[in-house]
C-alpha cells in the first residue's frame, strides 16, 4: 500500500491521474480521466447514457477496476491489494439507482449488518447508530418493517441511511432518483441537500439540475468516457464553453 505525499493528501481526498478503463479489448469506457476532488467538495456529474459517469464513480469504491492510471482515495491507492480495497470501502458509502436493499432483512437489520459484521460493533451500539441515521433521514418509525413494504422514496432514504452507518468520508450517488416516481423525488433530494450542507464529500451522478444549482461546488459534464467540461454551477449553466455541453444542456433543460 503506497502512501501519497502528505501535502497532496490534505488537498485532495480523491485523485484520478490519467485513469483509463476498457470493457473487453475494444470498448474504451474511461479515457485519460484527470480529476481531483477536495475534501468536503460536492460534485455533480452529468452526461448522456454510456458516457462513463457511473463507471467513474464505481471505480472509487472498486466496484469497477481501472486498467491504467492512478487512483488515490483518502491517501490509499486503489490496486489489486485486498487490504486497500477493504479500507477504501469502509470510507466510501454508495447509494444505487435500484436501492438494492436486502429484502429478507428488516430496515434496521439492513443498517446494522455492516457495523456488526465488518465494523465489529456490539449489537447495542450498532442499533443505536442505525436509529440515529434513520432519524437523520426522517424514517425512524419504519425501523422494523421490511423494505418491500415501503414506498420507493422511503426505500432510497433507507439506502442512504445504510451507507451513512459506515460513517464514511465520501458519499457516492449513482442516479439516486432515476427509479423513483416523480412525487417521491423531492423527499430524497431534500435528504441529499441536508447531507451536502453538513460538509461531507459528495459525488453525485444525476439529471436533477435543480439539485446541482442548489448545492454543487462543481458540475462535471462527461461524454464518451472523457470529461468535457467542469465548472461552478453558475458558469456551467450560464456560460457553457464547449459546443457539446451547449448541445446537451439545450436538450435536458429545454423541455
Amino acid at each position: 500500500m503506497s502512501a501519497v505525499p502528505a501535502a497532496a493528501a490534505t488537498d485532495h481526498i480523491i485523485a484520478f491521474d490519467k485513469v483509463n478503463k476498457w470493457y473487453g479489448d475494444n470498448f474504451h469506457v474511461l479515457r485519460d480521466i484527470d480529476l481531483h476532488v477536495r475534501r468536503g467538495e460536492r460534485i455533480v456529474i452529468c452526461g448522456p447514457s454510456g458516457s462513463g459517469k457511473s463507471t467513474l464513480i464505481r471505480c472509487i469504491n472498486r466496484l469497477e477496476e481501472h486498467q491504467q492510471g492512478r487512483l488515490v482515495v483518502d491517501g490509499t491507492e486503489l490496486t489489486d491489494d485486498v487490504k486497500s480495497i477493504e479500507k477504501t470501502r469502509r470510507q466510501v458509502g454508495m447509494v444505487f439507482q435500484q436501492f438494492n436493499l436486502f429484502p429478507h432483512l428488516t430496515v434496521i437489520e439492513n443498517l446494522t449488518l455492516s457495523p456488526m459484521w465488518v465494523g465489529k460493533l456490539p449489537k447495542k451500539d450498532a442499533d443505536e447508530r442505525a436509529m440515529q441515521q434513520l432519524a437523520r433521514v426522517r424514517i425512524a418509525e419504519q425501523a422494523h418493517k421490511y423494505p418491500l413494504q415501503l414506498s420507493g422514496g422511503q426505500q432510497q432514504r433507507v439506502a442512504i441511511a445504510r451507507a451513512l452507518c459506515l460513517t464514511p468520508k465520501i458519499m457516492l450517488f449513482d442516479e439516486p432518483t432515476s427509479a423513483l416516481d416523480p412525487e417521491m423525488i423531492k423527499e430524497v433530494l431534500d435528504v441529499m441537500i441536508e447531507l451536502a450542507r453538513g460538509g461531507i464529500t459528495m459525488l453525485c451522478v444525476t439529471h436533477e439540475m435543480g439539485f446541482a444549482k442548489a448545492v454543487a461546488d462543481r458540475v462535471i459534464f462527461m461524454d464518451q468516457g472523457q470529461i468535457v467540461e467542469q465548472n461552478t454551477p453558475a458558469e456551467f449553466f450560464g456560460n457553457p464553453k464547449s459546443e457539446r455541453t451547449k448541445d446537451f444542456l439545450s436538450k435536458i433543460l429545454g423541455h
Partner: peptide
C-alpha cells in the same frame, strides 16, 4: 438474485463469504 444485491453488500464492506452467507444464499 439481482446483481445489485451483491454490489450493495460489497459497497458496505462485506467479504465474499459474508455476502453469500447473509445476503445471497438466504434469498
Amino acid at each position: 438474485i439481482p446483481n445489485g444485491q451483491v454490489e450493495a453488500a460489497q459497497s458496505i464492506g462485506l467479504s465474499y463469504w459474508q455476502t453469500q452467507r447473509k445476503i445471497v444464499l438466504p434469498q
